[in-house]
């Protein structure tokens, strides 16, 4: 992606989020939007992260607490189901894990280099004391 230089920009520093026209943005999902190179959606903050969330759908009850409390729009929910974490935009704050009500939690934080399949295979068991 070739970025525009300082003096090639429109006067007044007006940035357009989309290429082309979107009529009803509130009804258009992110994957259907034609983001322009000026939308931060096309950028990534993945390198901020030291720990990352891993999502285990076996325990998820689709309560959507993580979706509503995610500060970085990184929990992807479609049709009332949680389908995954957007690793380009997740900053690894860990709020999703804190608010997860299941036992064991369906989201847990692991070091950035952890392998998803290995961690899901060795997921912690239900904590009886807490229940």
């Amino acid at each position: 992606m070739a970025k525009k230089g300082w003096d090639e920009f429109e006067i007044g520093a007006m940035l357009r989020t989309f290429d082309g026209k979107i009529d009803d943005i509130a009804a258009t999902r992110q994957e259907d939007r034609a983001y322009s190179q000026n939308s931060s959606y096309t950028a990534s903050v993945a390198d901020w992260r030291l720990i990352k969330p891993i999502f285990n759908k076996d325990y998820c009850i689709d309560c959507q607490f993580c979706w509503v409390y995610c500060p970085d729009v990184s929990i992807i929910s479609r049709d009332k189901k949680l389908i995954g974490v957007d690793m380009d935009h997740c900053k690894g704050c860990g709020i999703c894990v804190e608010v997860c009500p299941t036992n064991p939690k369906s989201l847990l934080m692991f070091p950035e280099q952890a392998d998803e399949e290995t961690e899901i295979a060795s997921w912690p068991k239900k904590d009886e004391e807490e229940a």
């Binding site: 009332k80 957007d86 900053k91």
Partner: peptide, 26 residues
């Protein structure tokens, strides 16, 4: 309910530079 709320298409994007865990974007 929250499930219904979660069908909203966000109009605020990630990769903003707010601190991790900032309540502003929530």
């Amino acid at each position: 309910n929250l499930k219904e709320f979660s069908t909203s298409a966000d109009r605020f994007e990630g990769a903003n530079l707010l601190c991790p865990g900032c309540a502003h974007s929530i």
